[in-house]
């Protein structure tokens, strides 16, 4: 029995699809690459002709193009949103009174400082500057030494861990004593001399440190003597006058 022939209008697309399936594959992916330019009207004429030819035979791609055209028309309508009645008044208030007072004030330091602090990244910038300053200070030589402070401290920690730890701890102990006990001095220089036993650079550093400590102690003594002199008046009742004075 002879199979009936398909009508030509149905047979040809099927033939095209089967040929494409066995050769290059469907051209839909290529059309998707060109779809936006086609909708925008920026496609070269040759490509446009080929795309239109494909669209005439591909319902799926026609739908995509229709959706793109709809988006092209509808999306710009979402750009503006009404912020409400009070928005304009708020903007006008902020751009008149406060600006005229703070930014146009006669004090250039105040207005400059306000402007600086209003910058959104000021915290980040401050942290950056602090880090940079720390790195620069670490590269500066200590007094009496040609080596940078950072490497000196690092080698000190490496070679004399106990000593460097004591140096780090002694100021903290002195501070806590000064805070918690009024009789305590800031630092005890003898402790440093006993524990460090340095030589060379470390000896000079210790001597400098001791001088600093002595100065701090003398200042502390002076402050305490001043504080005693300005002590509060006694609350005890005054003694009765002697009989001879009556």
């Amino acid at each position: 029995m002879i199979r009936p022939l398909l009508p030509l209008s149905q047979a040809l697309p099927d033939l095209t699809a089967s040929i494409l399936a066995r050769t290059s594959g469907p051209a839909c992916a290529r059309l998707r690459d060109l779809a936006c330019d086609l909708v925008d009207g920026t496609l070269p004429p040759d490509d446009q002709e080929l795309a239109v030819h494909h669209l005439a035979h591909c319902q799926g791609c026609r739908d995509v193009i229709s959706a793109l055209e709809m988006l092209h028309q509808a999306l710009p309508g979402l750009a503006a949103v009404d912020p409400g009645e009070a928005f304009l008044a708020g903007v006008l208030q902020r751009t008149r009174a406060p600006l005229t007072e703070s930014y146009r004030s006669g004090d250039p330091f105040l207005s400059g400082w306000t402007r600086l602090m209003r910058r959104p990244r000021v915290a980040l910038e401050a942290a950056y500057l602090a880090t940079a300053a720390g790195l620069i200070l670490a590269q500066l030589p200590l007094p009496g030494s040609s080596r940078p402070a950072g490497s000196t401290l690092a080698s000190l920690v490496r070679t004399h861990p106990r000593t460097s730890t004591v140096w780090a701890q002694v100021p903290m102990q002195g501070m806590s004593r000064a805070v918690h006990a009024s009789r305590a001095r800031f630092l005890d220089a003898k402790n440093i001399a006993r524990t460090s036993r340095p030589s060379g650079f470390t000896q000079r550093f210790a001597e400098t440190w001791q001088r600093l400590v002595k100065t701090a102690n003398s200042v502390w003594d002076w402050v305490r003597s001043k504080a005693r002199g300005a002590a509060l008046p006694s609350t005890e009742p005054s003694k009765a006058p002697s009989r001879s004075s009556l």
């Binding site: 998707r32 936006c36 995509v64 959706a67 793109l68 709809m70 988006l71």
Partner: peptide
Amino acid sequence: RSNRARLELAEKVLGQGALP
């Protein structure tokens, strides 16, 4: 990126069943 975004959006719109 723009073309990819537009195509993705178009396909999402189509995936909702009908063109708006």
